[in-house]
Design a protein around this nucleic acid. Structure first.
Lengths: 174, 174, 174, 174
DNA sequence: CATGAATGAGCGTTCATTCAT
DNA sequence: TATGAATGAACGCTCATTCAT
């Protein structure tokens, strides 16, 4: 693949991510292309259709999540710490985006499956936090994951805002 | 107004509410009409355009909120109790919807203003709860309102689900 | 036919004539009905569809023309005088109207035929005027009729305006 | 601009002119597109909406008129000659069209203003003809302009037909 | 019989996608 | 290969016509 083709593809993805995040899933293809400083045709050369673009973005965001979670596990020395790190990181972007895009890709594409695997991973983390006694035990892990998702995926979420803090306080054991 | 016209108007509103809630703000007009068992023309006779429909629904949802809040103040004997009642009620519907529709109506329509007045009302309630010592004081009232909105407006929210409970626990003083 | 039904029919025709004349052939049915102080349903009871209404108006306007021409022949003592009278009368309304409506009715309805018979009548009149020496002879009668139609059918035509006068001067022999 | 895009734009304009002239201002957009051998989308790429198309056509027709009038002034050696030339030219097309389109564009677009400026130009020409003694003086210039417009704008007008001749004879001094 | 609410085909317009340049 | 012009299916909305009240 030629160097400039690679650069173009990256520009498309970067700008698509930004626009999808800023303005929701209805952004027009030609606007994404324009934001990347390219013609629509070039966009379509890289992604056969709108779904493919959404899929690519969703998948890479979720993969990034998985990787980040793995790294956090190495770095942090408590499940609660991992959770904090992840929440802080998510608020920077990717999970919210992936959710907002999932309405654009069909079931078969497997994005939902990937989402589920990220949820599994988080549920597992929550369970560990419950076991280590830092997270309240009266809420099923899945539900904690949903709560975290909701709070973290709201548009404009930031790691240190009151909402996140209150949520974490609500989750802490005791 | 003829009896059946009234019934039809109600059917339109009911179905529009349901569809907007279930599938977001992009539902097609003719689908709403079909869901109500009517032709598009009928829908347009009752609501001159898509905005008008969204506005009607948004406004009536917010008005219902205001009324409910007033009634709750009579009925409950603590601000915390009022908040519980409202959260429980919201989860049944209206606030979430109004927010999701606000992107469909132009600024001048005044929906945003109405939203703000509901937020004021809630912020006031939160402040009272803080004064009576039932709600933690380290979060500004406005932020509490945002949190409540986010949790309550997520699609599929229910009064008694874990998310709501955790959020309320996170808000309780101490 | 009941007395009020007759009155309604008349009101419809009167108002339709006025609206077609004032605003061209695109007026909406329900506007005509409203102008007549009636519901659309009533309009459709009297005229099965838009064409039927147009036809009725066109036909009666042309018949009125024919009658007027006949009366003028009795009354006036020169073909030139008849022509003057007719031009003056036309400018009050009917011919223009009939022409503007003819695009609304299908060929088979026979409006065109009626129009042709009125044109014949006028052509005959012109020929007589040429024979009596009051109207220039170098223009074929049919062409004179077309000229008169154009001038008289322009919206806002009046019997005594400059256009009519110039035309008549242009037609006078010598 | 690409060569074929230019060609397409021209094809659209040409066909729109023809269709508006032949069938009045109600022609459908997709018919214009089809007549040009193009899809609707292409039409809309060149002209954002129906008004824009009408405006373009109207404006360019009127500009052509102005230019032609200027050229005629150079070429002809009497105001009467200029009038003849213009009438002959108009009958080929543009003025009629512009008038019929003016109902499609909103007041602000300025088409009416342009029309007025063309009328001014003609009125001036008429006045000069009156001064040089070739055109009857008992009709105000504005009225002459109206007459010329009516006669020349009738659908199917031709420079050498009897109507035009009679009109000019009616206008000649004495 | 009068009414005006309901209907739905049809037009103007948008935008994802294709393809000539 | 990159471009952006061309395409046409699909959506919002209108209005002639029908039919329940």
């Amino acid at each position: 693949m030629r160097a400039d083709a690679v650069r173009n593809r990256e520009r498309i993805v970067t700008n698509a991510v930004r626009l999808f995040a800023e303005r929701g899933p209805d952004v027009q293809m030609c606007e994404i292309a324009a934001a990347a400083g390219l013609g629509v045709g070039t966009l379509y050369r890289h992604f056969p259709d709108r779904q493919a673009l959404a899929l690519e973005i969703g998948v890479s965001a979720l993969r990034a999540m998985t990787e980040f979670a793995g790294a956090a596990r190495e770095r942090e020395d408590s499940a609660w710490g991992e959770l904090h790190a992840i929440v802080r990181h998510c608020a920077t972007l990717p999970l919210a985006l992936a959710k907002s895009l999932s309405e654009l890709v069909p079931e078969e594409a497997g994005l939902a499956e990937l989402e589920r695997s990220v949820d599994d991973l988080l549920a597992d983390l929550v369970e560990r936090a419950q076991k280590e006694g830092t997270l309240r035990k009266d809420v099923p892990p899945r539900e904690v994951v949903r709560l975290v998702s909701v709070v973290v995926c709201r548009p404009g979420a930031r790691a240190d805002d009151y909402l996140t803090v209150v949520m974490l306080d609500g989750l802490r054991a005791d």
